[in-house]
Every structure is written in structure tokens, then in C-alpha cells.
Simulated scan of single mutants.
Amino acid sequence: MERMYTTIGEHFIQILCDSAKIMNWIERNFQVVEPIKDQPDLFIQLTEGYGIPFVDYHVTITKESNLISFRRADYLIETSLDYQNSRISVHNELALKHALMNLYSSYLVYHRWGLLIHSSCTIDKDNAYMFAGHSGAGKSTVAKLSHPRELLSDEATIIKITPDQITVFDSPFRSELVRTGVKESSTLTGIYLLHQAIDNRIVPLTKSNGLLFLMNKVFYWSHSLEETRNILRLLQHVVNAVSISELHFQKNDTFWELIS
């Protein structure tokens, strides 16, 4: 098996894989690094040839005394209870991306480090702004319209949550847009819930409404009451620290005049 190392957020990850195709995909999408410490934060073993092409997002979850299994038509994840040691079998590259996103999200929640949120995120004047919404609301559109500002994510935003600061990290989990800068992280300054419109305007939201909206934007399998509580606690930190508003925007870059 081939061994490689990468980092996501602040986490050092070791990957073992016997598939050249999978390793090539990882090398295209993740930053390959030299070993930086003896014990990785996550250890992942990858194999291909599992299941059938994507059918839907339904995941069957089985929990035993020392193992959790997540089974979808196109992937199988078997992981330790702390999500630090995992075996992933996938059908193709799409299955691999989805499996890695959900495994990493579960790791963040379990260790109360932060969240992986379905959104795009752009840096303007050294501050990060996150854009979320329902499917088709314009996350990728806003990311494209924000060029030449640096893009930290166009699909899955990694945020670290501490009592003093909310920090966004460059995300390798991308949909269609490649990285457009050199910054690894930035302070999260604003969250905007997207609505395409005929004019630009911002409508502030209450903290409770903002929390409810963000709750279903977290990449997460709802299988543990305690970990669902962790998500709520983490999101409460976010909405208390960062302003959340609706952004009604024209399909051009003039909405940035309202933000910055």
C-alpha cells in the first residue's frame, strides 16, 4: 500500500491506499506534506471497488462497542468511536469525497474543534465571509462573482470555534472552483443566507433564527444525541460571535458594496 500525508484545517492525516486512481485524486485535491509528527490526528485506510454508483444520500449507521459503520450505496466507512482510525471503501471519486467530508465533519464535532458547513467562503480585506443557502441559492455563483478575492471554499467551509474567535480554514472539499490565494485561514466576520433578487439588500437575522438555519447546513449524520448537542453548542458560539443576515443579491458583484 502507498502511504501519504496531508493536512486539513489544523489536523495531520495519514492515508494508506492500494489504488493508484484514488491516490491520484487525493494528490490533485489535497496538499501532500511531509510527516510533521509521529502520531497523526486521523489515520485512514482507503480501498476501491465497493458498492454501486451514487443513488441517494441515505446512510445506514451501525454502532458497536468499539466501532461505528456508515454504509451508503457507494461507500462504507468503519471507524473507531473517536473517528481517529478509519477504513473507507468507495465505488468512485464522488463517493470518496462525500465519505471524507462526513468522516472529517464527525471528527470535528466529536472533538468539539469546529464544524464543516455546506457553504462558500471568501476573504475580503483579511476578513472571511461565509455564504450559505438552500440548493441553487447561489453559493457557487457568489464565489465566482467574488473574484479576484481569495476563495477558502465553494462547497464545504471548515470553521474552528473557540470562545474568543471563529476561524475559517482553506477547504480541500470543493465542488468546481479551485483555490485562488495563499491564505490558509482567516477570521470569520459575517454569515449571509443567500436569496437571488432584483436588488441588493441585507436583512439582519436574530441569533435563534440564524442558529436554526445553520443547523441543517452542517455536514453530519444524526446518530448520536450527545454529538447533536455538541453541534448546537458549537453553533451557539458562532451566532453569538458573528453577525448573521439574509443577503438578497443581484447576479453581479455589487453586493460587496453592502458587505465591505
Rank of each mutant, 00 (worst) to 15 (best):
Y107S: 03
Q31F: 12
W25K: 07
R71G: 00
G133H: 08
G136Q: 11
Y83E: 01
G51P: 11
A137C: 12
E257H: 14
D74H: 13
D18K: 12
L235S: 09
N92V: 03
H111G: 07
T47A: 13
P40M: 03
I88T: 06
V142T: 08
R179E: 11
S120E: 09
S153C: 01
L194S: 05
D82G: 07
L193V: 12
I15T: 02
M4I: 15
L188S: 07
K139P: 10
P35T: 13
T6M: 13
Y75W: 10
K217Y: 04
R3C: 09
V242I: 09
I44V: 15
Y220F: 12
Q31V: 10
E226L: 10
N66V: 01
D170K: 10
T254R: 14
L46F: 13
H223P: 00
N240F: 00
I166K: 03
T122G: 06
S243C: 01
I22S: 04
P53E: 11
G190T: 02
H248G: 02
I22V: 11
P163M: 09
M4S: 09
K21V: 11
E2L: 05
E93G: 00
F255Y: 15
T122I: 15
G133F: 06
H111E: 05
S120R: 02
T187I: 14
V33L: 07
F255T: 00
I36C: 13
H91V: 02
S80A: 04
L234S: 04
L46Q: 11
E93W: 01
K125G: 00
T122C: 13
L247S: 05
H118N: 03
M1Y: 10
T180R: 15
T167L: 04
Y110W: 08
M130R: 01
L194K: 02
R174N: 12
Q84L: 01
A143L: 08
N24W: 00
L67V: 06
L258I: 02
I202G: 06
F131S: 03
D56F: 12
L145G: 04
I244N: 08
F30P: 01
D154T: 00
K183S: 14
K160G: 10
Y192F: 15
I26A: 02
T254S: 15
R179Q: 13
T180L: 14
M23L: 14
H248P: 04
N240K: 10
L16I: 01
R28L: 11
F131P: 02
H58N: 14
R112N: 07
F173I: 05
L67D: 04
